[in-house]
């Protein structure tokens, strides 16, 4: 593996200061599940890594003012096992549980997952549906970035040089919300999704969608919300036809890539299939199993 120097700041101010004074190619490392693999493959050759492991408290999971606050270093395993998350934010627990395999989830972190800006992230579509925001700290101070504006492009997050994601804040889901995440993989079940669909709906007594949010992974250069599909649903009864129309809209507004996992057309077709199935499962309260080709 390409040799690098490892710097281990013990506080956030020290981490910001360390990132600020480094020249050459330096990278921030959290769990390392993506970055170390990329270094091993020779895709990046950093001179230095700045690890966040020694910064205390960055892996906390707590509720603050009604919102869930996930420290950036909370691992996927920490989050999926958290009683707080499972009870209050079950859609997030469900999506995080689908990331890769158990021994990856014990290392990979939520901050790392978002900063990596993987288009086919499992947690991102769920967090988009939950209107989460990233807390970002940099030389210029702290700012909050709604997740809807956090993903700037293909593997590109809205982070300036020297900035660190410190936490993810997730507001409580609306009262009566039903949420679900479904992952379709085209190679093997532990792979990243060909497409992932998260949805959150609130139905009134007559079965109409008071609220409808749909998040898509693997469906564009970044994780996205399916705005047109959501608009098609709001105020409408969630009939089979309405679910089909919304799924059609989601497939239409998707802008997927073609790669070794599948073509853009195939991805669009799978969004159509899985968005419809997910919406109907949420309406009927039935379980929907992940799909593998």
């Amino acid at each position: 593996m390409h040799p690098f120097r490892l710097l281990e700041p013990e506080s956030l101010p020290e981490a910001i200061e360390t990132l600020g004074r480094l020249d050459g190619e330096s990278r921030l490392v959290a769990g390392g599940t993506a970055l170390v693999a990329m270094i091993r493959l020779g895709l990046v050759k950093p001179d230095r890594l700045v690890s966040l492991h020694r910064v205390p408290g960055l892996n906390r999971i707590r509720v603050d003012g009604g919102s869930l606050e996930l420290g950036a270093m909370a691992t996927h395993a920490d989050i999926e096992r958290s009683r707080t998350v499972r009870d209050g934010w079950p859609l997030l627990a469900e999506a995080v549980h689908r990331v890769a395999t158990p021994a990856i989830r014990t290392s990979g972190t939520i901050g790392g997952n978002l900063a990596y800006a993987e288009a086919a992230s499992d947690p991102a579509p769920a967090l988009l549906c939950l209107n989460a925001e990233a807390r970002v700290l940099g030389p210029g101070g702290e700012r909050a970035v709604p997740l809807a504006r956090f993903f700037r492009g293909f593997y590109e997050a809205a982070l300036e040089p020297g900035e660190i994601v410190t936490a993810v804040r997730v507001p409580p889901p609306p009262a009566g919300a039903r949420g679900g995440y479904v992952k379709f993989t085209s190679r093997s079940a532990e792979d990243k999704p060909l497409v992932g669909v998260a949805a959150l709906v609130v139905l009134d007594g007559a079965g109409r969608c008071v609220e409808a949010r749909i998040g898509l992974g693997g469906s564009a250069p970044t994780p996205v919300r399916a705005d047109r599909a959501e608009r098609a649903l709001r105020g409408e009864a969630l009939t089979d036809a309405a679910a089909r129309a919304a799924a059609e809209a989601a497939a239409g507004e998707a802008d997927p890539l073609s790669d070794l996992m599948g073509s853009a057309d195939y991805r669009r077709e799978m969004i159509r299939v899985w968005a419809r199935r997910l919406l109907i499962a949420l309406r009927d309260g039935t379980a929907l199993r992940d799909g593998t080709r």
Binding site: L6, T33, R40, A103, I104, T106
Partner: peptide
Amino acid sequence: EGVCGTCTVLADGQPIRACLVLAAH
């Protein structure tokens, strides 16, 4: 690359991929 799992070891009772986790961690 963290895919095959044969390097799995336990850290504090949890499985990790020895090939992806930095020794410092």
